[in-house]
């Protein structure tokens, strides 16, 4: 079921088109990754859905009901906008207390701070927080509100590897509890691991809108590295699926996942033993393919 549906969303800033009549939806109970190069329009989508920016046109529906005012979405949605900001002269805990007061909610803030790994710093003023700590605080503030949809813009920025893994674990946990999560990020490899669907934006338009299941069915880019030029028959086989770069003795082939093992066997049978086989991340290869095509 579609939790959120956005139709024909357009936006421009100062004469420049930022979103070009985009339509997409977020399925209930899924983690959706919103991808795209810088300036693609990812943050703009979040800002429109957060009511910070008014679009030129577009319709937003939540659970099938059209919203007369997009900013009404805030009643059932929590946001983390990129480069989160807090009151520097207040502590992390005091900032969260402010949000609790705004929402009229009581929340166990110690538990929340512990959940995001900030409990040792809860009384420290935010002006002394690192970027990663502010990111964690921003994530904590999204969990004060009782919502069913979480929109996170670049939540992994500034996080160390531990923080990164902790956040993924947290998002998975929230998702398992029924939360619909939308995350924008440049970290394609990582996003591919835990998201269920992907929307790729490029230059204000949707370039790809695909579920993980469908993505897995797509062909992968596989590179086979050889220590010398393969025999003629092997080169013919290679040319059926891709190309051979003589300078780096590497064959780059487009193969479906189930074809990789059999292709290795066939190459070995033809006397071409690869010294290394590398599979390019599906999402990354699709991303590069689409953005390169569009640039062309």
């Amino acid at each position: 079921m579609q939790m959120l549906r956005v139709e024909e969303l357009s936006l421009h800033y100062g004469g420049q088109r930022v979103l070009n009549n985009v339509s997409f939806s977020f399925e209930q109970g899924r983690i959706t990754g919103l991808l795209g190069p810088n300036g693609a329009g990812k943050s703009s989508i979040f800002k429109v859905l957060a009511g910070l920016v008014r679009p030129d046109s577009g319709v937003v529906s939540k659970n099938g009901e059209r919203l007369d005012d997009i900013s009404d979405l805030r009643k059932s949605c929590s946001y983390m906008i990129d480069s989160p900001a807090f009151y520097p002269y207040l502590s992390g805990r005091q900032n969260l207390q402010l949000i609790c007061k705004i929402l009229g909610r009581e929340k166990d803030l110690e538990k929340l701070m512990r959940l995001v790994g900030l409990d040792p710093f809860s009384k420290k003023r935010v002006k002394n927080y690192s970027t990663g700590m502010k990111q964690r605080l921003a994530i904590a503030q999204t969990m004060i509100h009782d919502v069913d949809l979480l929109l996170l813009d670049e939540p992994f920025n500034g996080l160390d590897p531990n923080g990164f893994q902790d956040l993924i674990a947290l998002l998975r946990q929230l998702n398992e509890e029924g939360m619909t999560v939308v995350v924008s990020s440049h970290l394609l490899n990582e996003l591919e691991q835990f998201a269920d669907a992907f929307i790729l934006l490029h230059d204000g338009s949707i370039a790809l809108d695909i579920s993980k299941q469908d993505l897995l069915k797509l062909k992968k880019k596989v590179s086979f590295v050889f220590d010398s030029t393969p025999p003629e028959d092997a080169l013919k086989l290679i040319s059926n699926f891709g190309s051979f770069e003589k300078g780096i003795q590497t064959a780059i082939l487009n193969l479906e996942p189930h074809e990789i093992a059999t292709t290795v066997e066939r190459l070995v049978g033809l006397g071409a033993v690869p010294v290394n086989v590398e599979t390019q991340n599906l999402l990354e290869s699709k991303y590069l393919e689409i953005t390169a095509d569009l640039l062309d």
Binding site: G51, L52, I81, S83, P84, A85, I102, Q141
Partner: peptide, 13 residues
Amino acid sequence: EIGTIRLLLTQPI
């Protein structure tokens, strides 16, 4: 200047 206007306006107020 410090960006907290976004923190406030992303709440349902």
